[in-house]
Design a protein around this nucleic acid. Structure first.
Length: 499
RNA sequence: GGCGCCGUAGCCAAGUGGUAAGGCAGAGGUUUGCAAAACCUCCAUACGUCAGUUCGACUCUGACCGGCGCCUCCA
């Protein structure tokens, strides 16, 4: 296997080569849990989930660590605003986050470390930096000295002297006064007596924003990671600072490869909690099959921006998300195709020497090749479209009068679906379950009653049996007017919701 | 001021120094009692603009236009 990934550190696409060729040690920055995961988080964690799946599907052992930041000033702030206890607030959102990840089809990381259980590791790392002259204590805070680390800026490709400090208009003056250099960042922040905090060698306080990821990643994966990932917004300062503090402490390279995913955008602006222009993943789960959200995240290259559209009614209420609805139809197509393949009658499948179509026989390989090339998921989905079309053609042929399908082609197709699940995490659920769920969610959204629809269908079946096609069509039209599409098949009439 | 990204058909979106994947929408067809689903066919002389390099550029270089991100809240 030769996976090539764009490495932010070198600004080039290059072979992904773990120190141990058979074992990748990967750390991904997880969320700070003070609110529900929004679509930006969803995208990020789907991307790294596909990375991990792809590596594993091709024989590499992966230790995947994704943290949960459950100690942070934003949690403190949100807790104060809502009159909650910070630890309880963080625990609640951590649970919600975990649930959302599962619904998106993301695998659990091998380790999901939390700040609250790694304070000792943080103390040790901060102490090491203080001892090494890379950090200093100032009025109860501890700061990392950026001037003590000559490589500062190597990830984000910026020069301390060229940066416009305060360009984001977010400088905190009380802390600025305690710093030797304006770019120095807090490793430890003093907390007032009685406030949320921990007793440390430097007094009561809580960790700064960046130190937890260095402490937790090195604890679980060693001093040098093979890959560190996260959103593009973490390049500076978060990951830059992680490099500084980690490499200053160990003297070793912190991560061999840095991978960053692009933003989800709304009206050409980044979706973010601070702008308030976000949709949470769970807002969407009520309207759209979660796997469709996963699918949609793969329609654009992971480093490119992904812009989100929705439709509004006259009152300004969100009426739909066309992109997700399209993705849901594609997901349904995946499952319908899989269902047809699984449902081929055994007597239609024969041993012969008819070669399987290239789109079927080669799908697993072509899927792997697409992802090998910097995780090119849009190309993977294009190949999937060709695969599914060919599988449907195979099924069409098999179901024609006296039609047959070659056993080898059927087996290749089955292998293709297994590869799809292993590499992209798509098509893993039982087809009938997910298809019914999509249908019933759609019916519910239109206020339709499934039992009433089934009764109408029964009436229509009677009419059809007595060749009363006028009545049958009247019922079809009546239901169609409500958005119910009838599907006459050899085993009776099913229904679905049309758009 | 610094660093970086983007501009491909009605829409979404890959991609390559040698002549544009895939999806949606649209048109026609096979099939169907009628439909739907599925499948087939068609659908960018064209890749923001203008120069340059080249036998040849959408792909490289430069300028310009338009849009966006980061420069201590962020996935």
């Amino acid at each position: 296997m030769s996976v090539r990934l764009y490495n932010t550190l070198t600004s080039h696409k290059e072979p992904f080569e773990p120190a141990d060729p058979d074992h990748a040690r990967i750390y991904v920055c997880g969320p700070t849990v003070y609110d529900y995961a929004h679509l930006g988080h969803a995208r990020c964690y789907v991307v790294y989930d596909v990375l991990v799946r792809h590596l594993r599907a091709n024989g590499m052992k992966v230790t995947y660590v994704r943290n949960v930041t459950d100690v942070d000033d934003k949690i403190l702030k949100r807790a104060a605003e809502t009159g909650t206890e910070p630890t309880a607030l963080a625990a609640r959102f951590a649970d919600a986050y975990s649930e959302d990840m599962h619904r998106l089809g993301n695998l659990d990381p091998d380790v999901e470390p939390r700040v609250s259980t790694h304070l000792e590791d943080i103390f040790a790392l901060v102490q090491r930096l203080v001892d090494g002259g890379h950090a200093y204590v100032s009025d109860g805070d501890v700061y990392f000295s950026v001037e003590s680390f000559s490589d500062y800026g190597k990830l984000s490709h910026r020069d301390l002297t060229q940066m416009k400090l305060g360009a984001s208009e977010r400088l905190d003056e009380t802390h600025a006064a305690r710093k030797r250099h304006p770019a120095d960042f807090a490793l430890w922040k003093k907390s007032e007596e009685g406030a949320w905090g921990w007793d440390s060698p430097w007094g009561r306080g809580r960790p700064g924003w960046h130190i937890e990821c260095s402490a937790m990643s090195m604890k679980h994966l060693g001093d040098t990671l093979d890959l560190h990932g996260g959103g593009l917004d973490l390049v500076f300062p978060h990951h830059e600072n992680e490099i500084a503090q980690s490499e200053a402490a160990t003297g070793k390279l912190f991560s061999r490869c840095w991978m960053h995913n692009g933003f989800v955008e709304v009206d050409k602006e980044k979706m973010s909690k601070s702008l308030g222009n976000f949709f949470t993943a769970r807002d969407l789960f009520d309207r759209i099959e979660p796997e469709a959200i996963r699918y949609f995240m793969m329609t654009v290259h992971y480093r490119a921006p992904l812009s989100l559209d929705w439709t509004l009614d006259d009152a300004g209420n969100v009426t739909g998300f066309p992109q997700f609805e399209e993705a849901e139809r594609r997901v349904a197509y995946v499952y319908k195709t899989k269902q047809r393949l699984e449902g081929l009658p055994p007597n239609r499948v024969v041993d012969n020497d008819v070669p399987a179509q290239a789109e079927i026989a080669g799908f697993a390989d072509t899927l792997r090749e697409s992802l090998d090339d910097d995780l090119n998921m849009p190309v993977a989905l294009a190949k999937l479209a060709e695969f599914l079309k060919a599988v449907n053609e195979l099924c069409d042929q098999a179901m024609r009068k006296k039609g047959k399908a070659a056993r080898s082609a059927v087996e290749h197709a089955q292998r293709g679906f297994r590869a799809l699940e292993a590499e992209l995490g798509v098509g893993a659920e039982p087809a009938d379950v997910i298809l019914l769920r999509i249908r019933d969610r759609g019916a519910k959204a239109r206020g339709l009653d499934g039992t009433a629809i089934e009764q109408q269908i029964a009436h229509r079946t009677e009419a059809r049996n007595s060749k009363d096609f006028a009545e049958a069509d009247r019922i079809r039209d009546e239901l169609a007017a409500q958005g119910v599409e009838l599907l006459d098949g050899p085993e009776g009439t099913g229904w679905t919701i049309s758009d």
